[in-house]
Nucleic acid binder design. Structure first.
Lengths: 337, 337
DNA sequence: TACAGGAATTGTAGCGCTACAAAATTCAGT
DNA sequence: ACTGAATTTTGTAGCGCTACAATTCCTGTA
């Protein structure tokens, strides 16, 4: 029977130092400032470290130096493939900059607050959040500790820094495209319930765009976030009830747009001739279903990359609080409009 | 202009102790062993801590106690919704047990090895991995440090502990279902390239099941993992080339099965009459498309929960190395078979 | 050969916390 | 009031590492 975890003799910097025949400080320097150590010495130290399987204890280093190379990211859900790209962007950036990224999932504001506490407990170098709606106490805590924080997917008024794009502008752009394609009775599918700001700000943008053209702007139908694809058929039915001649539809995600497409095929409706459908998010499914979905691509990887860069800049003394970076969006024109 | 992060006066246990008028040790006890301190004292300490926004420094605590309340999970990808459920299960279990979960994404073995190093550097209490194929050095390192490790989604021969189900058994069960439904010319879609063991072990199970019944067992088509939905049509075309009377199809994921369903609808084939289609993974899409997909549900949440429990048990002194837990699977019968 | 000046190396002290043991306080039962 | 035990509180030492200053080792030049 093998020994329990704690009973193994831990490999410390000290043991590496002894094996390499140098002082512990030299071992430390070898890892943190390799250029300060003579090449030959460095070789010996690295050899000893490899031999012993030595991994520097971040916890101790962090404590001694007051600095951390770890950035914490709170993600609301991993179901959504935009977040996947966002995380990829962050991973890429931390790798370039010599940092580490750790993730926590949080579906609710309470969970987010708990995740923030964990990260602060770990004394991470910075934190990235999604959205601009957070628990009051959590924000207070972040303020007090002064950790660099980037809010992603939002576009203005951060309590520290933000990176994202404007959902309102994106909505306008999508409506413009629908209008250009000849649609005149455009419907809007939104999320009901207490959904986040970045979804809610689309509604007024939708209304304003249509009113400006003198078109009907009340074809709005709210669905339940949990319904997935199933929300598509429901929304289509609801909206057709309001205006049977509905000819364009703006969906909050590609998933719902796909659901609408399934329903159109069931009804024998041609897309985009009978109904033009706009997605949002550029999920994988958008380019795979028939007809291929015209959608909005939010540059999620860029967002992730910039979120990390902003934190690292701040740690290095640059980067002002209040900094907002607009990573924009792109409309991917395919077959559904 | 606000001060830089490092310049803020940090709130330490000491400052809480002063404010509450007790010794630092009492503050420590209040957080770690609340029952050891008098209720009234506890109240004072908690009040002071809240007032100052004190969050215990995990790094220091970890260093002093040699113990950690953080478990690290390495996830290969978050695109796949089974992993989502797996993570949910883990989150739930850590919350129950008073631990924390942090995630790292790793698509390749190299990235996995790096993630393991990070976790060991953080001196986490345990690590969960996916699959049983890891970089040799990483395994060596895990062995040396003795961290409790659970390999998930696999069923046997762990180097420490494992939790999962047998892909071979699952394949057999699915084939049995197809046969029962009257299929006699069954095709198999697999992943080409260097794909992990848990996918590869399905092939011999497929062949054996069919040979045992004296049926054709060479209708195997390999697709590229990156093709997503698009792999479905390709596989269907390839397999029909081998046997135009193909009447059943076993897909490696629901995504591919969905792609096949799209293609069937394009061809005007009835499912399951013309072709019965089996998915794998019970993704969201499985219950949303028409016809609804019969698929294999791997009890991912259970897997996550058990992975965490096994680690915590080990830390607490129970739980043998070599422990394997079979969380089984379920076939979700819907309309495609 | 001596020595300034840079390169490389090494003690010292302490980061914030906790294990442990010792000390102080409270309490019950005479 | 007094004692022994139980409860609560508190020093002490040290976890593994790094900042910083001090020391030692080199090299080239006078």
């Amino acid at each position: 029977m093998s020994k329990a975890y704690e009973e193994k003799t831990p490999v410390t910097m000290q043991s590496v130092a002894v094996m390499a025949g140098v002082s512990p400080m030299t071992v430390s320097n070898t890892f943190r400032y390799p250029e300060r150590v003579h090449a030959e010495t460095r070789r010996k130290v690295l050899l000893a470290a490899a031999e012993l399987g030595y991994i520097p204890n971040h916890a101790a280093g962090n404590l001694a130096s007051g600095q951390s190379r770890v950035i914490g990211a709170v993600i609301p859900s991993i179901k959504n493939s935009s977040f996947y790209k966002y995380v990829r962007g962050m991973q890429e950036a931390v790798a370039d900059l010599g940092y580490e990224l750790i993730l926590k999932l949080a579906d609710t504001q309470q969970q987010e607050a708990a995740a923030i506490q964990t990260f602060i407990g770990l004394r991470v170098a910075g934190i990235t959040l999604v959205g601009d709606e957070h628990e009051k106490d959590a924000v207070e805590l972040l303020r007090k500790t002064g950790v660099p924080v980037v809010e992603s997917w939002v576009h203005h008024a951060p309590f520290d820094m933000a990176v994202g794009y404007s959902s309102a502008e994106a909505t306008q752009a999508m409506i413009a495209l629908l209008l250009e394609a000849g649609c005149r009775r455009i419907g809007f599918v939104g999320y009901g319930g207490s959904v986040s700001h970045r979804f809610r700000e689309r509604v007024p943008a939708f209304e304003a765009s249509l009113k400006a053209r003198g078109l009907r702007s009340d074809l709005i139908y709210l669905v339940d976030e949990a319904d997935g694809f199933g929300a598509g058929p429901k929304a289509l039915e609801g909206l057709c009830g309001m205006d049977p001649a509905l000819d364009g539809l703006l969906c909050p995600t590609d998933i719902i747009a796909a659901g609408v497409l399934f329903e159109c095929s069931r009804r024998g409706w041609k897309v985009p001739e009978r109904l033009a459908v706009a997605g949002w998010g550029d999920y994988e499914i958008a380019s795979e279903i028939t007809p291929r979905l015209t959608t909005l691509q939010p540059n999620a990887e860029d967002m992730g990359r910039h979120a990390i860069r902003m934190i690292v800049e701040r740690v290095r003394g640059a980067g002002e609080p209040g900094h907002v970076r607009n990573t924009g969006f792109q409309i991917v024109r395919r077959d559904s409009i």
